[in-house]
Nucleic acid binder design. Structure first.
Lengths: 200, 200
DNA sequence: GACTTGAGTGAAGGATCACTCATATTCTGT
DNA sequence: ACAGAATATGAGTGATCCTTCACTCAAGTC
């Protein structure tokens, strides 16, 4: 049995330039994964694109999977933050409008880095990316709360909706049919919620 | 620029045992991808698990991506076939029952090899897996026809539904909540169709 | 039995890539 | 100005892995 790959950072940057180095590495990784997929994701390429030496990379990350973990965490937190803002703005909207707004947030986020998101999603299971999962868990909770406030569902529904959204958005981006995507997504979500309430 | 990887078979098996070899290679690849992901998918491991020498593998496949292509095609055709059977059996059912039946087919198929399906899905873009896409195209057409017979939608709706299903099923398998999955999937599909008709 | 062809083998070449380490540079507090 | 800490460098190492190729084996044909 191979050891599970280490995913916790080796040390924390203390100076500003070190923080910039770490940031550059994560950003370069995101770009490479988006453009070339997992196949093109190697530490040499990441360091080169980040404009940093390979040695510096290993100062902060114990291995390539640790970079993935940091990236997954960054993305999960960005989504959670965007969703939090939207949830704060829709308190008094009707359900269809509120859902449409949330759908738009999901579309915006997922559209920016489709491929990256899918890859991270796939890798999250293989490595135990708990930090990213923690952020994702907050997202689920926020949605579940929104749903139960309106008596539309709970955590299970939130998860179903989140996953269904991912699939729909990814597919649409892949084939270039993103026009009216948020609306189409709203149909699926509202339909799911309506029918699940009546338990048909 | 790297050459795009070759994905067409090198030669066709002419004898029965050769066909068995090819089959063993494809099956071993499926098992490895499902169990270890892309990271564990290398030609040596495939050949070893298939009980075939590495040389034999290269007799029939010009490279590892060609195996992926063959596998993607096999999976796409299996799904298309299963769906075709179901479509033939639901001609006179009401829409909710018919959709439930189709949802069950999708759940059955996707549940068997979730990880494999996701990986293939991700790689189909990177390589131009036209053969698999052709089979997938037939699937889309079949669903589109089903929908338009009942005035529920067309090809765009079929694609949205297919992608949404993938996301929902993958997510449910990932977190182990497959109970009532076909029913939940039906909610999303029927809801999407109902709301898209009234164009809300 | 000689010949042909399809099938199978695995050692070895060569490329890629993760990761280390000895050294050099920059920063920070005093 | 200086020492020590933090940061950065990149050639080098070793392992993994893709792929080729020279060769053997088995089955069918004449």
């Amino acid at each position: 049995m191979a050891d599970p790959p280490a995913v916790v950072p080796r040390k924390r940057p203390r100076q500003a330039r070190a923080a910039a180095t770490v940031e550059a590495i994560i950003e370069a990784s995101a770009r490479i994964l988006e453009a070339e997929g997992l196949a093109g994701f190697n530490t040499n390429a990441v360091a080169a694109l980040a404009g940093v030496s390979i040695g510096s990379l290993y100062q902060y990350f114990p291995g390539k999977e640790a970079i993935l973990a940091a990236l997954a965490r960054r993305e999960a937190e960005a989504f959670d933050a965007a969703l939090g803002v939207a949830l704060g703005e829709i308190g008094d909207l009707g359900t269809p409008s509120a859902v449409a707004r949330l759908a738009q947030v999901a579309v915006d986020h997922q559209t920016r880095h489709t491929r990256l998101a899918r890859i991270l999603d796939l890798e999250e299971q293989r490595l135990g990316l708990t930090e990213a999962q923690a952020a994702a868990g907050r997202t689920v909770q926020a949605i579940a709360e929104f749903l139960s406030d309106r008596h539309l569902g709970g955590e299970a529904a939130a998860l179903d909706i989140l996953h269904l959204s991912r699939g729909l958005i990814d597919g649409a981006v892949e084939r270039g049919t993103t026009e009216g995507l948020a609306r189409r997504l709203s149909w699926a979500i509202l339909g799911y919620l309506a029918l699940s309430r009546q338990g048909s």
